[in-house]
Design a protein around this nucleic acid. Sequence first.
DNA 1: GACATCATACCGACTGGTAGGTATCTTACG
DNA 2: CGTAAGATACCTACCAGTCGGTATGATGTC
Lengths: 221, 221
Amino acid sequence: MTATRTHPEVAPHESKAKLLNAALYVIRARGYSATRVEDICESAGLTKGSFFHHFKGKEDLAVAAAEHFSAMADGLFAQAPYRSLPDPVERVLGYVDFRKAILLGDLPEFTCLLGTMVQEAYETHPRIREACDRYIASHAHAVAADIAAAMAARGLHPNLNIDWTAESLAFYTQAVIQGSFVLAKAQRNAAVSADCLDHLRRYLEQLFRPSQSQTGPSPSA
Amino acid sequence: MTATRTHPEVAPHESKAKLLNAALYVIRARGYSATRVEDICESAGLTKGSFFHHFKGKEDLAVAAAEHFSAMADGLFAQAPYRSLPDPVERVLGYVDFRKAILLGDLPEFTCLLGTMVQEAYETHPRIREACDRYIASHAHAVAADIAAAMAARGLHPNLNIDWTAESLAFYTQAVIQGSFVLAKAQRNAAVSADCLDHLRRYLEQLFRPSQSQTGPSPSA
DNA sequence: GACATCATACCGACTGGTAGGTATCTTACG
DNA sequence: CGTAAGATACCTACCAGTCGGTATGATGTC
């Protein structure tokens, strides 16, 4: 079955990666609490012996899965085509377009592990909550960097007319995405997520639209 | 509802209501799967005997709790002051302001039971998913009614320049709210929710801002 | 109004399956 | 051989759901 063992150089911890990838899908489908470690083992084609060799326990797996998910996402967005757009405003809009483009397949394939887990675990599993918070914030921070550049490119600076920051707008994009996943799960249909991203794009377009009165009557401090 | 008693003035099924109210808080804190029926009984000051007298099982409680939550929310919004604003645009913005105003107390006191449950249960508990979907859609529909009136008041009609509908915008508001709760749970702080509602308000303000080029050059079809 | 009857509400000990975690054994590899 | 990886069997706590029982109060009948 796991005859890949004859090629040790392939991956240092191939089984651990299998368990983590299995966890990504199963937890996003069933939630953290309802997921049994045997479900994950089954999905990974391994047994509990292997599982408890690599992880201290279920909570430990959840924290590792959150990190794994975050690393996968970082790689995905780093390689995305929109990253090479020269205009930072276009990069911000390209991010939204890309998020819309990856709404493919079943819900557990594109929804967010972090948002799924933190809803159940925020009160009862501090370590899981902290991990989810950290990686969500990390992703938001990356988005905020483009937003900050876009603001600079359009001459937008927080003042009396701009009472929002790059950080708050970045978190807003994440709220829209997370919330759109909640609705998609309720409806068993990702179409609502795409509609939400259209609204988000419209908001961003207008925030960064040139030659509005947004820079205020006296941009100089 | 179940007024089989000949003395309906005595609270009918006070214990059932206690269990439902307990469920609202406990499930929003711990999530559906991790909540034990004994947790709910304890919180309600009752025993499992009473619980299983009133509900067929845990899933049955979840569905009833969803309906109960929806009914409570309907009452809350129906009585809210913004409801009596004459301008429908002001009612739409007042809705957002009201949602921001009720971000009080601990997270389980103001977050959404429907969004919490549907994330864990959408794949494994069809009846819970359907209930959450139904009541979220019902609330969104109520918001959409004000939005439709606001569009009419501003002369906005879906055309080449308005490629969104009252329904899609209403679901967008719900996505923002749901997502803001996810972030608030991750951060253990509702401040991010308030910031998100500020962004949402800004978007709505601008969609309904009078005398923009939004009605398009040729509003006639 | 007294009594029998019946339904509703509620209690709490018990059970049986489940699932997280452990202990032990086998195998592969350097 | 020693260590890491993984399989199998097992243990134990937990928890949804059951079941026999009690209390209360409504209803019917004489």
